[in-house]
Computed example of a mutant assay.
Amino acid sequence: MSHTAHIRSHRKPRRSASKIAMRAGVAGGVLGTLAVAGASASSANAAEPVTQTLELPTLTADLAAQVAQSADATQQAAANYQLQAERDAASVKAAKQAKSDLAEAKKKAEAEKKAAEAAARKAAAERASRTTQRTTLAVSTSGTGTGTSTSTSTGSSSSDTTVTSGSTATGSAAAVISFVKSQVGKAYVPGATGPSSYDCSGLVQTAFKQVGVSLPRVSQDQSTAGTQVSLSNLQPGDILYWGGAGSAYHVAVYVGDGMFVGAQNPSSGVVERPLSYDPPTGAVRVL
Results as ranks from 00 to 15, higher is better:
234 L>D: 00
179 F>A: 10
153 S>F: 10
180 V>C: 14
238 D>G: 12
260 F>D: 00
216 P>H: 10
228 Q>E: 14
223 S>M: 01
146 T>S: 10
252 A>T: 06
270 V>K: 01
264 Q>V: 06
195 P>E: 06
230 S>C: 09
253 V>L: 14
268 S>L: 04
250 H>L: 07
237 G>T: 09
256 G>P: 06
259 M>W: 05
219 S>E: 01
175 A>L: 12
138 A>L: 12
282 G>H: 10
156 S>Y: 05
174 A>C: 02
175 A>I: 12
160 D>Y: 07
192 A>P: 03
158 S>C: 00
234 L>I: 03
232 S>Y: 13
167 S>A: 15
262 G>T: 05
201 S>K: 08
205 Q>E: 13
223 S>K: 08
186 K>V: 02
238 D>F: 05
265 N>A: 12
270 V>R: 03
143 G>K: 11
162 T>E: 10
193 T>E: 11
213 V>M: 07
222 Q>N: 06
284 V>M: 12
160 D>P: 03
170 T>M: 04
209 K>C: 07
203 L>K: 06
283 A>Y: 05
186 K>I: 04
163 V>L: 14
246 G>L: 10
164 T>K: 06
267 S>D: 04
183 Q>M: 12
233 N>C: 03
188 Y>C: 12
236 P>T: 11
140 S>G: 13
157 S>W: 14
251 V>N: 05
276 S>D: 13
152 T>V: 13
193 T>S: 12
138 A>K: 08
198 Y>P: 01
224 T>H: 11
183 Q>T: 07
186 K>G: 00
225 A>Y: 04
201 S>V: 10
149 S>H: 12
208 F>M: 05
144 T>I: 13
246 G>C: 13
222 Q>Y: 02
147 G>Q: 07
246 G>A: 11
184 V>F: 07
251 V>S: 01
258 G>V: 05
203 L>T: 01
256 G>E: 07
225 A>K: 05
166 G>W: 08
179 F>C: 15
255 V>Q: 02
223 S>F: 00
207 A>C: 14
169 A>M: 13
197 S>L: 01
199 D>K: 02
181 K>R: 15
180 V>T: 11
254 Y>P: 02
211 V>A: 11
243 G>T: 09
232 S>M: 07
238 D>I: 03
243 G>S: 07
151 S>C: 06
231 L>A: 12
189 V>H: 02
139 V>W: 00
205 Q>H: 11
182 S>V: 04
